[in-house]
């Protein structure tokens, strides 16, 4: 109940910032929202979406640091349930985050991290798949709804293998086949290649999705845990994805700096 209230407060605050002209109260939990349908009858989640929180810096409660705004945990229950050895590694990751975070090397950031990075993404639906196009690195995820199971492993993909289904109006995405080389945030929260993510995208109003991700990794955590956050439809009339070619900008910067040791250290 308290969580619901907090989420609603954040949602309304964000709504006021993003869309002063919108009608406040359309996310009322009393009346479940019924989304429009696509031509082939799926709930229509299409459009340009973006998160409005600080999870990309730290999934858990955190104070402010230079370049990092403070924020509340998006983890249900507040803390990530690490096994003792994994917690030690997380702390070490945090200390060395400036050089160890794979995001500083402009690799694909993995799931769910890419969802809550501060860049917009666009959902495009077809009968056989839901494509999620991210401005960050032109990353694209294909959530196949074609009845195919996950392909046989061993596969280690940066963005995993995504298979989707509809549960009512909720898009449920099962993601496996990850590399162990991505993190969940800049604070060093990490996983192994045994990571299993189940994402849920639930429309709660014309301009809001509730994003939930259950994270399971028996090599790192003591139990599955869950994050949740609202996603906001970009309200600008001319909202569109541009590009953030992180790897291209980084390559040019380091390549043209004779003193750079970036490539050797990477």
């Amino acid at each position: 109940m308290r969580r619901g209230f907090a989420a609603l407060t954040v949602g309304v605050a964000a709504l006021c910032m993003l869309a002063p002209a919108s009608v406040v109260g359309q996310t009322s939990p009393a009346a479940p929202y019924v989304p429009p349908r696509t031509a082939d009858g799926q709930p229509d989640l299409q459009g340009v979406w973006q998160v409005l929180n600080t999870a990309a810096w730290d999934l858990e409660d955190h104070g402010a640091r230079l370049g990092v705004p403070a924020g509340r945990s998006v983890v249900e229950g507040g803390a990530i349930p690490y096994q003792p050895a994994a917690l030690a590694r997380k702390k070490e990751n945090f200390e060395k985050r400036a050089s160890l975070d794979p995001e500083t090397k402009c690799f694909h950031p993995g799931v769910p991290r890419i969802t809550y990075m501060p860049y917009p993404f666009q959902i495009v639906q077809q009968a056989d798949k839901v494509s999620i196009l991210y401005e960050y690195l032109h990353t694209v995820r294909y959530v196949y709804m074609n009845g195919n199971p996950h392909p046989r492993g061993q596969i280690e993909w940066w963005m995993g293998d995504s298979r989707g289904r509809w549960e009512g109006n909720t898009l449920v995405v099962d993601v496996i086949h990850f590399t162990d080389r991505t993190w969940f945030d800049r604070a060093g929260n990490f996983h192994s290649s045994a990571l299993h993510v189940v994402e849920r995208y639930t429309p709660t109003g014309p301009d809001h999705l509730l994003y939930e991700a259950t994270i399971e990794d028996p090599k790192v955590f003591t139990r599955p845990w869950k994050i949740s956050m609202p996603l906001y439809r970009r309200q600008e009339r001319n909202a569109e994805l541009f590009e953030y070619e992180c790897n291209a900008y980084l390559l040019e910067q380091e390549w043209t700096n004779p003193a750079s040791t970036f490539f050797e250290k990477r």
Partner: peptide, 12 residues
């Protein structure tokens, strides 16, 4: 199906 190629990551 389109499958990830990880070209940049794999060519570091």
């Amino acid at each position: 199906e389109f499958w990830e190629t990880g070209c940049y990551e794999g060519n570091a």
